[in-house]
Computed example of a mutant assay.
Amino acid sequence: MTTEKEFIPVRIAVLTVSDSRGLAEDRSGDVLVGRISGAGHELADRKILPDERHQIADQLREWCANPEIDVVISTGGTGLTGRDVSVEAHRDVYEKEIEAFATVFTMVSYKKIGTSAVQSRATGGVAQGTYLFALPGSPGACKDAWDEILAAQLDYRHAPCNFVEIFPRLEEHKRRK
């Protein structure tokens, strides 16, 4: 549902987590970039990093400190194998976790892949006034997360509420009283 408010584009960075993919093979990153620009948002940055927890967390912190980036979406590294460390890296950075993001993503995934949805550890959170989302590394999962959750929540016109309208309040606790 949308209201008559004017669209506000947000600046989104995309991080692909992979030990084996380069930009030419990054289909999941391409899906996100296409949907970001197709929705009228701005691609603020894009990188590919290996499945190394400290490197991922450092990149997330760098982007959170950048006032030109509003949202970070990572893809890959959310599974259950030993090298899947994106969720842990995200949680190293979060000030607040958006628990319902994982729940809603699981609900969306369940409709498509049934009980295999339990193997995904998508997550969302906030740090330094920046939204962060970790998605699975498949193009289908990126499409589902964007189309079913993020497209609406990153659209200021979406009602009854959305992530964009509360941007100004994410760091209200830091204001001097």
Rank of each mutant, 00 (worst) to 15 (best):
G29Q: 08
I36E: 05
A141P: 07
I8R: 15
D147M: 03
A152D: 15
L15R: 01
Y110T: 10
E99T: 10
E6D: 14
H158W: 14
Y131D: 02
D92Q: 08
F101Y: 12
S116F: 08
S116D: 13
G82A: 12
R61W: 03
G129R: 08
E25V: 03
Q128H: 14
R61A: 13
G22K: 11
D155P: 14
D144I: 01
M1Y: 14
C142Q: 04
S18E: 10
T123K: 05
A102N: 10
L135C: 04
E165N: 13
S37E: 15
A39S: 15
P67E: 14
H158A: 13
K96C: 01
I73M: 08
T75D: 03
R21P: 05
R169P: 00
A89D: 06
R91C: 07
A57E: 08
D30I: 03
A151Y: 06
A13W: 03
E6N: 13
C142E: 06
H41K: 06
W63I: 06
S37K: 11
V108C: 10
E148V: 00
S74Y: 01
N162C: 10
R35G: 04
V31Y: 03
N66F: 01
E148G: 01
T103W: 09
V87Q: 04
A100G: 15
N162Y: 06
P136K: 01
G34F: 02
H90R: 01
R53L: 14
D92K: 03
I36G: 05
V93E: 00
L80S: 08
T81G: 15
A134C: 11
D92T: 06
D30P: 00
P9Y: 00
D84G: 09
Q55R: 13
I56R: 02
V33Y: 01
V71A: 09
C64T: 06
A145L: 07
H90T: 07
S116T: 08
W146C: 03
R157I: 02
V17W: 11
D70L: 08
I73S: 02
V164T: 09
K96E: 02
G38R: 04
D30H: 07
E6M: 10
Q55N: 07
P50W: 12
I113Q: 13
G124D: 07
F167T: 09
R21L: 12
L154T: 00
F7M: 06
R53H: 11
T103A: 13
I69Q: 05
D92A: 09
Q153L: 11
R27S: 12
V164D: 07
E25T: 05
S86T: 15
T81M: 12
E95D: 04
E99F: 05
A152E: 14
R169K: 13
T81K: 11
I113F: 11
D51R: 06
Q119M: 12
M1P: 14
G40D: 09
D51H: 04
E52A: 13
R27N: 10
S138A: 07
Q128G: 14
M107C: 12
